[in-house]
Nucleic acid binder design. Structure first.
Length: 314
DNA sequence: CTCGATCCCTGGACGC
DNA sequence: TGCGTCCAGGGATCGA
């Protein structure tokens, strides 16, 4: 699940390896999840990758204006443009020698002028890749929330404490903050001792500021460790990150809290699994955790279908 | 405004 | 060994 630190890691890797390269041609595999695959074939060839930027959870490969020669004298290719890349859950983007066989689920490959191919693979196809003009780019950008690495105390408090949604939902909402996903939301809430199901408006100014600080510290540290590799995240060099070894809450259901030894529990907040310490992070009234995936003992031992709704209404 | 439900998609884990 | 089911989750969308 590439979140901000993982996407930043990929972007840094791409900056080291593909800047200045020209795209020669584009090949397409399965394209049913791509908005406009033809635009990739039409508008990418001939352009140089001049910059790689990260914005929240997505990347922008900034492209030069295409040379106005050949059979495209001067159509839409005359202006700079961008290649938008969102890795979704399982997306990977990496340059590979063109001679090497393509990995399964390689959906887009861009032949570069040095004989490598910039390949986009995405097992589950939750990602997104699109050619954007200046206009469609600015349309993408509007509605994006604050950069969590840069957001000020005042701005963060305003975005959180004025809202009646659960804090977890707010952290995940890309129009509030761009780049935070399930892992770093849970990690920062644990560190700041705030229960994921609490309402944004119910956080004190002090709590909101603690959350902002911990979130920033965690994100910077995760970037330094090249992100978390929990399922299949690999950076542009095909290397996993290391931050998963530092998770304090995420994925630790049933294990002891690293501060107080209380058993870490899991509940559903904002439709997502949320891991928290019931003692360090006191929950709002009525919130109940999912039953621990326990031993099967009496009867069937199978938990029933409706037990899984461990969320709770406030 | 906020919520849950549903869909998209594949692979890994698990029960039998 | 194999089959069925559940689950992971970012984001869009729809109805309550």
């Amino acid at each position: 699940m590439p979140e901000l630190p993982e996407v930043e890691t990929v972007a840094r890797g791409l900056r080291e390896t593909i800047l200045g390269r020209r795209i020669v041609s584009v090949g397409l595999g399965k394209t049913d999840f791509i908005d406009d695959p033809v635009a990739l074939e039409e508008h990418l060839p001939g352009r140089t990758i001049e910059a790689v930027e990260r914005f929240g959870k997505f990347m922008l490969l900034k492209l030069s204006a295409a040379a106005p020669t050949e059979r495209a004298p001067s159509n839409g290719n005359a202006s700079p443009a961008s290649l938008f890349v969102h890795l979704g859950m399982t997306g990977q983007m990496a340059p590979t020698p063109a001679a090497l066989p393509k990995a399964k689920h390689t959906h887009v490959w861009m032949l570069l002028d040095d004989g490598r191919e910039l390949r986009y693979t995405d097992t589950r196809r939750f990602g997104r890749i699109a050619y954007l003009t200046k206009e469609s780019l600015s349309q993408e950008m509007e509605g994006q929330g604050a950069d969590p690495l840069e957001v000020t105390k005042e701005d963060f408090a305003r975005r959180i404490r004025s809202r009646r949604a659960r804090i977890k939902a707010l952290l995940l909402d890309q129009s509030v903050l761009r780049g935070v996903g399930n892992i770093y939301a849970d990690e920062s809430l644990w560190k700041a001792k705030i229960h994921p199901a609490r309402l944004g408006a119910k956080l004190s100014a002090k709590e909101a500021e603690a959350l902002r600080r911990e979130l920033q510290k965690i994100l910077w540290k995760a970037i330094a460790l090249r992100g978390s590799s929990i399922s299949d995240f690999l950076d542009a060099e095909g290397e996993p990150g290391e931050y998963q070894q530092h998770h304090r809450a995420y994925g630790r259901e049933g294990k002891g809290c690293l501060r107080c030894k209380t058993t870490i529990r899991r509940g559903i907040v904002a439709g997502r699994s949320s891991y928290y310490c019931p003692k360090c992070q006191p929950g709002p009234r009525g919130f109940s955790a999912l039953p621990l995936p326990g031993r099967k003992k009496k009867g069937t031992g199978r938990s029933t279908r409706n037990e899984k709704r461990g969320s709770a209404r406030l």
